[in-house]
Computed example of a mutant assay.
Amino acid sequence: MCLVCIAFASWVLKTANPQVGDAWKAVLLANVSALSAIQYLRKYVRKEAAAAEEKLNHSASAS
């Protein structure tokens, strides 16, 4: 999902026509997509780190 949002944001910026007055909409859409991807990635990393820490604590207390 994260890579899809980043790819979409890149595509929007590449295909946007800067001479049109509505170019700000494409930039806004690209920025929102990129921020959503970053937020998703941060949540995923935190969740994975918490799971790894819990697994480590569980294996240490089992020994």
Rank of each mutant, 00 (worst) to 15 (best):
M1Q: 07
M1G: 08
M1R: 06
C2L: 02
L3V: 03
L3E: 12
V4I: 12
V4T: 08
C5Q: 02
C5E: 00
C5K: 00
C5L: 02
C5T: 02
C5N: 00
I6W: 06
I6C: 01
I6K: 03
A7K: 05
F8Y: 05
A9T: 00
S10R: 03
S10G: 04
W11A: 07
W11M: 04
V12M: 10
V12Q: 13
T15V: 14
T15R: 04
A16D: 13
A16L: 00
N17V: 07
N17H: 07
P18M: 06
Q19M: 11
D22G: 10
D22E: 10
D22S: 14
D22L: 07
A23P: 00
W24I: 09
K25Q: 14
A26W: 10
A26P: 00
A26R: 06
V27S: 07
V27C: 06
N31A: 13
N31T: 14
N31E: 09
N31V: 08
V32A: 11
S33E: 10
S33W: 03
A34S: 10
A34L: 12
A34P: 00
L35I: 01
S36P: 00
A37D: 03
I38P: 01
Y40F: 11
L41Q: 14
L41E: 13
L41Y: 08
L41T: 07
L41S: 09
R46C: 07
E48C: 09
E48A: 15
E48L: 15
A49L: 10
A50G: 03
A50D: 14
A52P: 01
E54P: 01
E54I: 03
K55M: 09
L56V: 06
N57L: 15
N57G: 01
H58D: 13
H58M: 07
H58K: 14
H58E: 14
S59Q: 13
A60D: 09
A60Q: 15
A60R: 15
A60F: 08
S61G: 00
S61H: 10
S61I: 12
S61Y: 07
A62T: 12
A62V: 12
S63Q: 15
S63N: 13
